[in-house]
């Protein structure tokens, strides 16, 4: 049997095991379509009263660091402060989406593109953030390449406080509303990369960034 037949064979065996007649098969197709139209509700943890406070608390517990500022134009200075404090050079690769901020004014030299292996710091925005787990939600796109939050050792992300949502469900609803669905690469990032593979002892800094700094605006 050729590999082209595998699909037919696997589906045929599933059908025969499920033992449906034509009418039952149509019902099954309808069940699937209905479940796709209207997701089945499931229990959720209670919503925190203050989403921003909850987000920050959980993000800290996932070993992100956090700075809070009030307006967007303070972002470059907040990033510069963090880089200076961490003894990192004032250079970064940034999402094209945030290239227009006044980086030079804060003394940071930026390039707006996808990241490369040798980039030390990557600065990104975020689509939204989740209070339940202290998580950044990042969507890939021409103005927001996925590598910027992945290849550099240090990742700084800008979080708009008005876009801190309760949990994944709200993020998905927002994606459907604003973007018509999921992007090619949708990443939920909660703190620096880590591994527990050796003796089940967690250490920070595996293949992704070993530092994640969040600049919460608002």
């Amino acid at each position: 049997m050729s590999i082209q037949d595998s699909r037919a064979d696997m589906l045929a065996r599933m059908r025969s095991r499920l033992g449906r007649n034509a009418a039952q098969d149509a019902e099954a197709a309808e069940r699937v379509a209905a479940a796709l139209r209207a997701p089945v509700p499931a229990p959720r943890p209670p919503l925190p009263a203050d989403l921003t406070a909850c987000f920050i608390e959980r993000a800290l517990s996932m070993q992100s660091t956090v700075a809070r500022i009030s307006v967007m134009h303070e972002v470059p200075q907040a990033c510069a402060d963090y880089l200076a404090r961490t003894c990192l050079p004032p250079t970064a690769v940034v999402w094209p989406q945030i290239a227009a901020l006044d980086w030079a004014g804060a003394g940071i030299e930026v390039v707006a593109r996808a990241a490369q292996g040798e980039d030390l710091t990557g600065i990104t925005g975020s689509f939204c953030a989740l209070a339940e787990t202290g998580t950044l939600v990042l969507c890939s796109g021409p103005d927001s390449p996925a590598t910027v939050s992945l290849l550099p050792e240090t990742h700084i992300a800008i979080v708009d406080a008005s876009r801190i949502l309760a949990g994944m469900e709200e993020a998905f609803a927002l994606l459907r509303r604003e973007a018509g669905g999921v992007p090619r690469s949708l990443n939920f990032v909660s703190g620096p990369s880590r591994t527990g593979d050796i003796e089940q002892t967690i250490v920070l800094g595996a293949h992704g960034p070993s530092r994640v700094h969040l600049v919460v605006v608002g």
């Binding site: 997701p39 089945v40 509700p41 998580t135 994944m168 469900e169 998905f172």
Partner: peptide, 29 residues
């Protein structure tokens, strides 16, 4: 089935596996 169903399962998988409330990277490709 859906993204919402995925969200439900993600409340259980990292907790049951490593005792984390979420894993560092959850990616949908």
């Amino acid at each position: 089935p859906t993204l919402e169903d995925f969200a439900t399962l993600m409340r259980l998988l990292p907790r049951s596996a490593t005792g984390q409330s979420i894993s560092n990277y959850v990616s949908l490709l």
